[in-house]
Design a protein around this nucleic acid. Structure first.
Lengths: 172, 172
DNA sequence: CGGTGGCATTGGTCAGACCAATTACCCCTT
DNA sequence: AAGGGGTAATTGGTCTGACCAATGCCACCG
């Protein structure tokens, strides 16, 4: 019952919970701001503060006069938006590349048949995409995809050179 | 110039620009909501919608009665936000355990000196915690921590048996 | 039957008010 | 003069109500 402390975040959680309980799926329209305010017993400005944050994170989309809609999880743009604030993020950029290498290294140790990678060894993106999909773990794949999107938002090129990719296929 | 399209995002950009132009550094106090509204020629509710989003992303912190302060970028709570959305909803439980194993497998391949793990081989939690820390990658560690927390919330016990942990130390 | 204009709905923005927490400041005591 | 305490000003938190702007629905008209 820690009520008073985080009313704002509680409102965000309440809206997300309501979306869940109403069984809304991506593309569905969510209740109007006025209806949300009434159902949650909060004011419309409070609803809006939560809704704008969700919209900024790319979880919902609002159309003037039309309503608010639940977006696909893959449409989330918050990573690019957050990256906008990381003007001095060079030190953390190494974390991104390092994490990607770790994730892909893990996938590689799981892989028995390396032949599936041979056709895509010439493309960095396709090579890594294929590698991750061999794991067949939805959560793992989502994590990789988000980190990769974050990494790409910094405008970097290939993660491995062609020679590195070929070497990875011969090692294990 | 700028279109009417995205007044909200324009407000966020304007606040960010003002922070830059005022030469504010992490820890500094930013102008009050009322002053921001006046300087940007927008209403206080509009200022609040932008500020609340920045606060949710961990870029600023607001203290009731005290003001709003610029946070250190190294806090990067945005990673927590990203992780929070990665590990919500329909993640299958077996994906959680599988992802943890993958992450720890990746850490293991990076580790040269296995002796640091010997003292903690008797404890599943300590073993895995120590293993992750050897990577020295903040983003990687946070991702692991979030997945592990979610896994624990399902009330599961040890991820590896004692025999499995000892085997991991002898393999490479 | 199709187009179209009006009206209800919904998001966008604003002004003002009041409460709650914090901070600043002045005055009194020592 | 220095320190402490209490009060007023400042600031964020929330709400009410209002009006504008964009959209969508639907009855009406051609």
């Amino acid at each position: 019952m820690e009520k008073k402390r985080n009313a704002f975040e509680a409102n965000i959680a309440a809206i997300k919970l309501m979306i869940e309980q109403d069984g809304l799926v991506p593309g569905d329209r969510i209740p109007s701001e006025r209806e949300l305010a009434e159902r949650l017993s909060i004011s419309r400005p409070s609803v809006r503060e939560a809704l704008r944050t969700l919209a900024y994170l790319g979880i919902v989309e609002t159309r003037h006069g039309g309503g608010s809609f639940l977006l696909n999880r893959d449409d989330h743009t918050y990573i690019q938006i957050i990256a906008q604030f990381l003007v001095t993020g060079d030190s953390k950029f190494e974390d991104l590349a390092g994490t990607l290498r770790l994730l892909e290294q893990a996938a590689l140790t799981q892989l028995d048949d390396l032949s599936v990678l041979a056709p895509v060894v010439s493309s960095d993106a396709a090579f890594r995409e294929t590698l991750i999909q061999t794991v067949d773990n939805d959560l793992f794949e989502r994590i990789w995809r988000q980190v990769n999107a974050f990494h790409k938002s910094f405008g970097q090129g290939e993660l491995y050179t062609q020679a590195e990719r070929e070497q990875l296929l011969n090692r294990p």
